[in-house]
Design a protein around this nucleic acid. Structure first.
Lengths: 343, 343
DNA sequence: ATTAGCACTCGCTTGCTTAGAGTGCTAACA
DNA sequence: TGTTAGCACTCTAAGCAAGCGAGTGCTAAT
């Protein structure tokens, strides 16, 4: 597939670049004039006809200019474009707007990241909050609040601190509570959160019951709380940005996109797929597994906390998007995020 | 303003009802046929001309039917419509989808409420999370996590439990920590959260320093954490529903609405205004203070936790909306929310 | 006071024309 | 043999006129 003459490559590049910029089909004359290739429009016309036959370009109708096909974009992304570094100023802007210098909750950093990512790329951004369940258990505490309630605090190796209020229907003496907590810590230590399954909890429960016949309610709630925490949140930024793109002038398309944005679980699935990848992934149009975004390009990358991949972020926009810039921004953002979350 | 003949009232009601249903200007013939008023179209025409002159109806152009003006809607809402109760089934659906029977975090209940409210009204819903700062301080705890960090837990009379991890740069003995916590509890007890100002904290800090020269960092962070908690979250549901309405076929309008939805602070201001009200408030078009929603109707109500008004919810849609139904749903939702949050 | 009838208005649709951009092909040229 | 100029052809978008239909306002009859 890399067997394209230098000239064809330059012309393809010109078509893609121009179309990204103007959103209008590109004619041979435009290319001859704007991109000093040193060929007449007629020659370029011939080459474009070839490129169309080879599947890199397409024609909306007979007498219009050419636009890149998905295959054309793919070739452009893989071989033609220049990945684009951010200026120092822009990098600083990102750092600053993440508010890394202050001590902030993880969620706040993620929300800021979504906002910056969307405003700087002019597209919609999505960021998965860190996956709690991939962290390893470190410590469990139960803090009695009053006679009836306690606060369960769970700490992981990645610095997560989750907590949940539970009802304690029977009163526990501090000594008993301490005993339970010590036992649990001992048993759970070193496990990954997603290894703390219902069956394991049941097992522990049986074990404990023999020694200490209380806490049933507490256990049910601990279990539920773990279950609930497993649903990871996805944060969106700049959802209104899709309306900036002429390809989304159609109200029906907007409707579908917005409806998608409201379904957090779907967004999660979309991002989750890319957790394994170490590099930036560009999925163009139908390369996306999800039908709802097959008219879009999704550019994603995974981020890490203390060298564990715990989440992913992405930029979603029309297939005609400024790949060089967006890829540069995503790369920078992941870099900053990795640094600021690992501490 | 209530001086309208019975006949005019019935005709106005018919126009509003028909326009709400069809979104098309209503002609005199349609009314004569569909709403058995027992008058010919000509008579109705005369009455409609009167109503137009009085400002209750308007004509998009000379040879079109009539549509209600804002004044017309206002009259309809105040005097003509029948507030509309929900069926038992629908009420059960609301209760069930709120998930009240399970023990859930407040935030989850609020998110569910937003979702139900939008899906049942087919409009966009907004709900303000409970205002932490209007609660009264009850108890403060500091739970040491390791040598360098502690978890601050703050409990209010309304059942809020907020917590934040703080860095403790100097190590504290358990006894010292206990002393600090006791002192703080004593000083803050009974105050409203928004009375815990920076100056009060500074005062306490000075006082404590004399006795215990540690904890500077902890104080800064406590202060910051309080500051951050003061920004209340607003949850949206069914943002894509605005696209169902023919009045939002215009992409530019959609753009503006979506951009508004991304600005949480603005949404907060919109709802905050209505915290004082005890009843359901209907703001039609230009009655809204905020320019961005002057083409919409906003129906809001405040909800309570343990008899304290801590938040508000609302439904936002086009001026042409099914007032009877939406008002009924909002009333029901507030009722259920009040009950489920106070426990 | 109500209603039937009729002329009139105005927006929407349809069909037609025109301008413009761009292509594909052919023939001439280096 | 590759490149280019020229020209006929295609297709879309924009503009315009005519006809249709829904609805009004007025007048005269009941």
């Amino acid at each position: 597939m890399i067997t394209l003459s230098e000239r064809k490559k330059r012309i393809l590049q010109a078509v893609v670049a121009d179309y990204i910029r103007t959103a209008e089909p590109v004619g041979s004359r435009t290319i001859a004039r704007t991109y000093r290739i040193g060929l007449s429009s007629a020659t370029i016309r011939n080459e474009m006809a070839d490129l169309e036959e080879m599947g890199y370009l397409a024609q909306p109708h007979t007498s219009a200019g050419r636009i890149p096909s998905q295959k054309g974009y793919r070739f452009y992304v893989d071989y033609l474009m220049d990945p684009g570094e951010l200026s120092d100023d822009e990098e600083l802007e990102i750092i600053h707007s993440l508010g890394i210098e202050k001590m902030r909750e993880i969620e706040q950093i993620i929300v800021s990241a979504a906002r910056v990512l969307s405003s700087i790329t002019n597209q919609t951004s999505l960021i998965m909050g860190p996956q709690f369940r991939k962290s390893a258990f470190r410590q469990l505490r139960i803090l009695p609040l009053d006679e009836k309630r306690g606060l369960v605090v769970l700490i992981t190796d990645t610095g997560f601190i989750k907590n949940k209020v539970i009802n304690l229907h029977q009163t526990l003496s501090p000594a008993e509570l301490h005993q339970v907590v010590t036992y649990l810590n001992q048993k759970l230590s070193g496990l990954n959160i997603d290894q703390v399954t219902t069956s394991l909890i049941n097992e522990l429960k049986r074990d404990l019951f023999r020694r200490l016949e209380v806490l049933e309610q507490a256990f049910i709630l601990l279990e539920e709380s773990l279950k609930e925490e497993q649903q990871v949140r996805v944060f969106l930024g700049g959802t209104s940005n899709i309306l900036n793109q002429p390809e989304f002038r159609n109200v029906e398309k907007i409707r579908r996109m917005l409806a998608l944005f409201e379904q957090e679980s779907l967004l999660f699935e979309i991002l989750e797929e890319h957790l394994g990848e170490d590099n930036i992934v560009v999925k163009i149009g139908k390369e996306n597994a999800f039908e709802d975004i097959q008219e879009c390009t999704l550019i994603t990358a995974a981020y890490k906390i203390n060298d564990k991949t715990l989440g992913a972020l992405g930029v979603l926009g029309p297939i005609r998007m400024n790949y060089e810039r967006v890829i540069g921004v995503v790369r920078c953002m992941v870099d900053k995020l990795n640094r600021s979350l690992s501490s």
